[in-house]
């Protein structure tokens, strides 16, 4: 749709609207000034923590996010970071394969012990 910006009729309506604004009575102007002062005063009366609530809320949200991520990483079952008992296995000089075949080594140890006992007697 066309919006004829330079139309004479539209220019005239703008002039009438401006004239109406200029003709505003002193009482209304005074009440508008009072309304403005009241709005500004109400803002000054607002406690500082409420004025800064968006910053406070953002800070709280960030703290909660860090806490959730921390707990998630701490308790995750071997996704990225291993739990503490796995750390102990990995740092053992025997290596993880030793613990995987632990049953075999226990059986071997028992088997060797049983074959040595008759020769001793």
């Amino acid at each position: 749709m066309n919006e004829p910006q330079d139309d004479t009729f539209l220019r005239r309506t703008r002039a009438w609207l401006d004239a109406g604004e200029g003709d505003l009575d002193p009482t209304t102007r005074a009440r508008l000034r009072a309304a403005r002062r009241e709005a500004l005063a109400a803002h000054r009366r607002t406690p500082a923590w409420r004025q800064a609530w968006p910053v406070t809320a953002a800070g709280l949200a960030a703290a909660v996010l860090v806490a959730v991520l921390g707990v998630r990483l701490w308790t995750s079952p071997g996704d990225d970071l291993p739990p503490l008992e796995d750390m102990a296995l990995l740092s053992d000089p025997a290596g993880p394969e030793f613990y995987q075949d632990l049953d075999f080594y226990l059986w071997l140890d028992e088997a060797e012990a049983s074959t040595q006992e008759p020769t001793r007697g």
Binding site: L17, E21, L24, R36
Partner: peptide
């Protein structure tokens, strides 16, 4: 700012 906007807003 408000002083400059209030009369138009009222209209």
């Amino acid at each position: 700012f408000l002083a400059g906007a209030e009369t138009r807003a009222y209209r």
